[in-house]
Amino acid sequence: MGDCRLMVAFARHGSMNRSISKLKYEAVVEVLLKEGVSDPEGVAILDAVVSLGYGSVTKVASGKFFRLMLHAEDEHSAADVVTEIAERLLSNPVLEDFRVRDLISANS
C-alpha cells in the first residue's frame, strides 16, 4: 500500500526534477546476498572456477548490479533517492544487502 504511493511519489519527483533542469548523476547499486544466506549460484560458479584450474579461489558470491541515471539538485539528494530505490525495490531486505557505489556526476 505504502509502496504503491511511494512509486507515484518517485514518478512525480522525477518529472519535477527534469522541469527544473537539475544536475545529472549516474549511480551504481550492487546487491549481494546477506552473509549466512545460502548462495547456490555462487557455489556452482566456484565449482566451475576451481575445475578450470583456479584452485586459489575460495569463494564466489553472486549478485546483481544496476546502473541508474537520474537528475538531482546535488550529490546528496541523488544518493538519497538511489538509496531509497535500492531499499524499496532493488533489494529484498530478508535476503540481500545493497551498496550504492560510484555515484558520479554525469554532466559533460
Partner: peptide, 10 residues
C-alpha cells in the same frame, strides 16, 4: 514474512 530464494540444488 520471509522470502523465497533459489532452490538449494539450483
Amino acid at each position: 514474512p520471509g522470502a523465497l530464494q533459489k532452490n538449494s540444488g539450483l
